[in-house]
Write a protein that binds this DNA or RNA. Structure first.
Lengths: 250, 250
DNA sequence: CGTTTGGTTGAAATGTGTCAAACTTTGTGG
DNA sequence: CCACAAAGTTTGACACATTTCAACCAAACG
């Protein structure tokens, strides 16, 4: 442990996130903690940025849950990803100026906005942080691939089980889970928009998952009483999250 | 035009690709053309790398068509992306050591393998090339997002129309299309595995698209007699390919 | 407490999958 | 260059996972 106490890395989701990938030096931590960041509170169900925007900054989710989505010409919504504290949903806009999707809040959120030029300077001065940012976008892409396989090939039951598996592991990876439970504040309609299913069928399927004792929903909390059973039901292999790779990479 | 003639950039798909994003300097072109690359011919339907591999090099598609795919526990195949000359299907392995998907050839291919350390040196010495590589992986991710929306929300008819639109534009972007036609060597089974549909239903849908004069298939060539009609049928907005962004970025 | 939002359930409609067979094209070796 | 095999395409009949529509219920909330 360096001169910066664990207090800081607990406080700052970005430090916590990157530190979980490789051991940050004190210089790197200082740079991250002192990053000029405009912190904003946003209500639930608000658009943060929209398809077609050309933002001059990206943001970190400090608290709460966001999603990226697109609307089709038919007016249907596809949620492409759920984002949790420590994630940067539009980091890509650093190199792809025009956004090809919208980002919205699903719960009340605290967001930290950072100017692109500040991020670019950070990448130049701290190449390992630059590579870590690149890596973040690569893990995002890996998750998109897995969702594509999930939506394209799996029936509703394993598809939704798979989502529960992913969310629990990702929450755990940033220290936001109990051993077998985590916050899960999404509505069944939102799950449906993410998984390519109607809210009605999501309901029937979750009812079945509950009846089979694979999950419990307590308020907005997901409880997984038997991880191995849920994992099997969801045909889930966590490799695509690259959590194991994390420490060996850098 | 610099000291290197257009002959070289036509010869080398990687130069052609990056040069289409931003004007390469002569130094950058020289570095790319002289990249130590092991060129290999591979037959159709061969695995190039497999899920779980930890490759020490990435490869460029020089000729032919590849795809990335995953197999589910049920033995179903999801094709996540089609790759055309100039693409680097496993560039991500530079920073995500363990592959979370396989890459296979769909036609006979000529592939150029480059050691990761060589690529890292290239990125260090030519930061613009480094950013261009990052950008490539971001466009890949953007395509995954669009496919997710396509598979998750659109019926078979617009879904397949959308795929035809994408392939024609991507082929055109690297100079591999006639004005309204391009090579399209995929079988209906492969299209089905990519779009989350059975080969039978792909067949019925393509039959319909042909009957509606939206496309023609001549051997392994796709012909699009009326681009606007196909685009409308596929609910297609090319923004996610970031072709317009290309020249303004860099 | 009434209002809103989200969850639950049933019945009917439908897009897509499965199975099976025939047909067509492509590639190949004699 | 033909003949055959292999691979891919096409078509029909039937099954079924999921959607849609509609109503009702439960919980959250100001």
């Amino acid at each position: 442990m360096g001169i910066l106490s664990s207090y800081h890395s607990n406080l700052h989701p970005l430090v916590r996130k990157l530190d979980s990938i490789f051991k940050l030096t004190d210089d790197e931590k200082t740079a991250l903690v002192n990053l000029p960041m405009q912190v904003t509170e946003v209500r639930a169900d608000q658009d943060v940025v929209r398809e077609g925007d050309r933002p001059s900054r990206s943001f970190v989710v400090l608290e709460g849950f966001c999603c990226t989505f697109k609307m089709t010409g038919e007016g249907k919504r596809q949620i492409m990803a759920f984002y949790i504290p420590g994630d940067m949903p539009d980091l890509q806009s650093l190199h792809l100026p025009t956004l090809d999707h919208s980002v919205g809040t699903l719960t009340p959120c605290k967001l930290g906005f950072v100017q692109h030029e500040v991020l670019n300077d950070l990448c130049d001065h701290f190449p390992r942080i630059g590579r870590a940012f690149w890596r973040e976008t690569l893990v995002d892409a890996a998750i998109f691939r897995e969702w594509l396989a999930n939506v394209g090939q799996r029936d509703a039951y394993p598809r939704i089980a798979h989502l529960f598996c992913e969310m629990l592991l990702r929450m755990r990876a940033v220290g936001l889970s109990d051993d077998n439970s985590c916050e899960f504040p999404f509505t069944q309609g939102e799950i449906g928009d993410a998984m390519g299913l109607s809210n009605v069928h999501v309901n029937r399927t979750i009812t079945q998952l509950r009846a089979d004792s694979l999950i419990e929903i307590r308020g907005s909390r997901l409880v997984v009483p038997d991880w191995e059973k849920l994992k099997a039901a969801g045909d889930f292999d966590p490799a695509y999250l690259h959590l194991e790779d994390a420490r060996s990479a850098a």
